[in-house]
Amino acid sequence: MTPRDTAPPAPAARPWRRLAAVLVVLALLWAVFEFTGLRARINPQALREVFAEHRAWGFAAFTALFALGNLIQLPGWIFLASAVLALGPAWGALATFSAALVSCVVTFFVVRAFGGQALRELPGPLARRLFARLDAHPVRSVALLRLVFQTVPALNYALALSGLRFRHYMLGTLIGLPGPLVVYAAFFDTLASWMGWALH
């Protein structure tokens, strides 16, 4: 065995390997949900029925599905619309907010476990500038991103891989997420009233 064979990998290669590990895990999760048919069953009608049958158990199932859906790239509006249709705008927004917080926590720790701080370790001046801004105002940055993108899975992945502290991640989420949820809940409730969809 030569010295080259026993040398550790170059530092620049490590973040790419961690990013690849995250992509593999997410792809496997997506494949399991896609080929078992479970992904197709996560839709507004099915989620409405979950709430209609049993509110307490339905909320637990709704939260679990939201967390899993976030990992397999399902948009959050599906869950918000379903909750609003079943519970009304106020309780629907509150249920979605609670489930979204759990989902954000799950995504953060799953992605961080496999990817570490891979994005922060990428070389280049652009990455350094972006992280310098994030580090200067972490809570405000997360809050503004939540205002625009809410719980978009790609945003959760990026924040988890950025090396951001969990408390900053959650505080920014708590500040930035309620506003857009209330607005979208009112929109879905109005749309449901026009179309005659609401159950509440």
Rank of each mutant, 00 (worst) to 15 (best):
G58D: 03
R55K: 08
R112G: 13
W197Y: 02
V139R: 13
L144C: 03
C104L: 13
I42L: 11
A160G: 08
L126A: 14
R39C: 06
F131S: 13
V183Y: 05
A64E: 06
A60L: 14
R18D: 11
V152I: 09
H137T: 10
A27V: 04
A61Q: 05
A192W: 04
V148G: 02
A186N: 09
L101M: 15
L19N: 01
A198M: 02
W16Y: 14
F187H: 05
L94R: 11
G172E: 03
W197R: 00
R112F: 08
L87Q: 11
H137W: 07
L130A: 10
G58T: 01
V24D: 02
W194E: 13
L119N: 03
W77R: 01
L47K: 07
L145I: 05
F62N: 02
A90L: 15
I42W: 02
T173A: 05
I78T: 15
I78F: 05
L122H: 05
A46R: 08
A46I: 03
A136C: 07
G37C: 04
V32C: 03
A83H: 03
S98R: 12
L80E: 05
V102C: 15
F79G: 07
I42H: 03
R48V: 10
L19F: 03
A61K: 04
V32Q: 01
D135Q: 10
L199R: 11
A118T: 06
D189Q: 12
L74C: 09
A12P: 00
P44C: 07
R146W: 04
A12N: 01
D135F: 04
F114E: 08
P153F: 07
R39V: 04
L101A: 13
R39D: 06
P11W: 00
P75W: 14
R146I: 02
L134S: 12
R18A: 13
R128K: 15
V102M: 15
N156G: 15
G172A: 04
T36P: 02
A27F: 04
V32A: 12
A198Q: 08
A12Y: 03
A52D: 13
R146L: 03
V22A: 09
R17Q: 12
V84S: 07
G76L: 06
G116E: 11
L28H: 00
L191V: 15
L80H: 07
S193V: 06
R140A: 14
P8I: 00
Y157V: 15
R14M: 07
T190P: 01
T190Y: 14
W194S: 10
Y157S: 02
A27S: 14
R14E: 04
E34M: 04
L144M: 08
A86F: 08
L122Q: 08
V183D: 02
V102F: 15
L161F: 10
H54G: 07
R140M: 09
F108K: 06
N70M: 15
G196A: 00
M170C: 10
L144H: 01
L159G: 04
T6Y: 00
H168T: 00
A21L: 13
A113K: 15
L126T: 13
V50F: 00
R39G: 05
V105R: 09
Q45G: 05
L159N: 05
N43W: 08
L177P: 01
L155K: 04
E121C: 00
L47M: 14
R128H: 14
R140C: 00
D135L: 07
R128C: 08
R18I: 01
L161N: 09
P15T: 02
C104M: 15
H54R: 12
E34K: 09
T6I: 01
G76T: 10
